[in-house]
């Protein structure tokens, strides 16, 4: 076996910074108590992944993250046979590792995966808590510490990319959004190591861009983007240049939207 059984590589050593905005920590802990599968919903860059890391640290569990993509197959989750000089050998996929040895398996942006792939998690997310590996003829019962967490962004994907009803209904959901301005400024201050005024300016810029959601932008600037721009500014780049490089350029390719966003940003900068 290629993996150590206590998954120590996946343990989180230091406490990740996470600023709770509501009762999400309590809900997650309650779900953990009963090992209920959890779904984190919310726009990109609002702290879903950071929250899972934080909870894994808090609960002293290894965290196995899988970023879903549209070519992902069930084998990428469950495992596959590999060829060695001695013949074929089975290799557990990330999901199977977590199921066998206990830990939180986090499937990031689950809707990116095809719907027929995601049904593999169904037997794990009800009372059975088993993972059938039909290629190996094995039925893996979940470790008592196994918990499944998925995240998805209901905003930008089309109706085509939605979870099956049968998948959705297996999860406890926690809704994430960008924090209120004061909290978001606090987060930007902490993460980007910038002063309160700069953080507040960045947050007001983000509010402007989020107003453009659906009117030129698919998504407004995320908290993560603000932190990036803040770090650039803290690193000596002028604020205008930092905002341009950290927010305006990544967020849109449309010249008109850029101009409009530029004008709004100019209004925000003191």
């Amino acid at each position: 076996m290629l993996v150590d059984t206590d998954l120590s590589a996946y343990r989180i050593a230091a406490e990740p910074y996470y600023r709770p905005v509501g009762d999400e920590v309590a809900v997650f802990e309650a779900a953990w108590l009963h090992r209920l599968p959890v779904m984190l919903k919310g726009p990109t860059g609002c702290g879903k992944t950071r929250f899972v890391e934080y909870m894994a640290w808090r609960l002293h569990q290894p965290l196995i993250t899988v970023a879903a993509h549209e070519d992902m197959t069930a084998a990428d989750l469950a495992g596959r046979f590999l060829l060695t000089p001695e013949g074929t050998v089975w290799h557990d996929g990330p999901l199977t590792q977590a199921v066998r040895h206990g830990g939180i398996c986090y499937l990031d942006e689950i809707v990116e995966a095809r719907q027929d792939t995601t049904v593999v998690i169904h037997p794990l997310t009800d009372a059975r808590r088993i993972l059938p590996l039909e290629k190996r003829g094995e039925l893996v019962s979940a470790h008592p510490d196994f918990q499944l967490v998925i995240s998805y962004n209901p905003g930008y994907q089309s109706a085509v990319k939605d979870l099956k009803e049968s998948t959705k209904q297996r999860f406890v959901a926690i809704d994430f959004d960008y924090p209120v301005p004061e909290l978001e400024a606090e987060i930007v201050m902490r993460e980007a190591c910038v002063g309160p005024d700069l953080a507040r300016t960045l947050v007001s810029i983000a509010a402007c861009s989020r107003n453009l959601r659906g009117q030129g932008l698919d998504e407004g600037a995320s908290t993560r983007m603000l932190i990036h721009a803040g770090r650039l500014a803290a690193g000596g780049v002028s604020l205008e240049a930092a905002v341009h490089a950290g927010i305006v350029l990544p967020i849109t390719d449309d010249a008109e939207v850029r101009e409009a966003l530029g004008a709004a940003i100019a209004a925000c900068l003191a």
Binding site: C208, N211, E256, A260, L261
Partner: peptide
């Protein structure tokens, strides 16, 4: 026009009584 509309939405879009 397109740019002005977006600027207005960006700056004033969030105020509650304010329609685009």
């Amino acid at each position: 026009e397109g740019e002005l509309k977006m600027v207005l939405a960006a700056l004033w879009g969030a105020a509650p009584p304010f329609q685009p």
